[in-house]
């Protein structure tokens, strides 16, 4: 049974990445009502940009990461301004179509530019593991959790204390209040896309050292991100975080005790069950349509 705390711990580290992916999805969804199916491809782009800066331009790793995240932010903003804005008033299906198209387009472009051979990124923190009672603390795991905490705190401050944050909350709820406060909601929406994609990119960069980097690496990560977001009710920051961490632990338990390969299928079954029992997510509320 000694192994259980270890499983929970590394599950939380993995869950932090799911939470980051889910956060990006939920922020964008809350602001504009669009589910960005291209989120995974955008994370892949971020990771490849990091890889190129590191191996092509020989930029120091931390700087490469920072530049890549800026690129992710710009990609998110550009996506909103050049593409999504044009279909803002279209049917929901059209918006789903657009982000799926971007998913294919970006995946295809990455494949054309970087090829399909697996690449890799080094660990961001390379310290020896520390034994702490029954568990071993892996520095990169601790780092993942730390990044989540720092970003969530930063996001909270942003949402609560800044004009941009007021605008982001306003987009989700009451447009009128924000208009009164003199905020350009169009700009807030683009910035939200930037932040959301940068969050996905962060998850992508952190995830790569544990796996390999190919144009389709992030498909799984983002499906987990979606599942985490759905578990959390698809609408709240806290729901995305709890959903992500929970999913990380559950996923790790499945991998250890059931089957490492079938975890996604089992998680999917759990998702169906959760949706069937609570169609609006574990923490969500029902929406009533008026006639």
């Amino acid at each position: 049974m000694e192994i259980l705390p270890q499983i929970v711990l590394s599950g939380l580290a993995q869950g932090s990445l799911y939470a980051l992916a889910a956060l990006g999805i939920v922020l964008i969804f809350n602001a504009g009502g669009v589910v960005n199916f291209a989120q995974g491809a955008m994370a892949v782009v971020t990771a490849y940009v990091t890889w190129a800066l590191l191996n092509g331009a020989h930029v120091p790793y931390p700087l490469a990461v920072a530049l890549a995240l800026c690129a992710a932010f710009a990609l998110g903003m550009a996506t909103e301004m050049l593409v999504l804005r044009r279909v803002a008033d279209a049917q929901p299906l059209t918006q789903i179509v657009v982000t799926l198209g971007l998913l294919m387009l970006l995946t295809g472009l990455v494949g054309m530019i970087f090829g399909h051979d697996p690449r890799s990124l080094p660990e961001l923190v390379t310290l020896p593991s520390v034994a702490l009672g029954p568990v071993i603390l892996v520095p990169s795991d601790v780092f993942d959790v730390a990044v989540l905490i720092v970003l969530v705190v930063g996001l909270m401050v942003l949402l609560r204390k800044t004009k941009l944050g007021l605008g982001m909350r306003a987009l989700g709820q009451d447009l009128f209040a924000a208009r009164l406060a003199g905020i350009s909601l169009t700009r807030v929406l683009s910035l939200t896309w930037g932040i959301g994609v940068a969050l996905a990119g962060t998850a992508g960069i952190l995830a790569v050292p544990n796996t390999t980097l190919t144009p389709t690496t992030m498909d799984t990560l983002v499906i987990y991100g979606f599942v985490a977001a759905v578990f959390g009710g698809f609408g709240t920051v806290s729901g995305a975080i709890v959903g992500g961490l929970l999913l990380g632990v559950v996923d790790n338990l499945i991998k250890t005790y059931l089957s490492p390969e079938l975890s996604l299928s089992v998680v999917f079954a759990l998702l169906l069950l959760a949706l069937y029992l609570r169609p609006n997510g574990l923490f969500g509320r029902a929406v009533v349509r008026k006639v």
Partner: peptide
């Protein structure tokens, strides 16, 4: 990657 790029662009 070319066909995926083209199809994505088409969509």
């Amino acid at each position: 990657g070319l066909s995926l790029t083209l199809i994505g662009a088409a969509i």
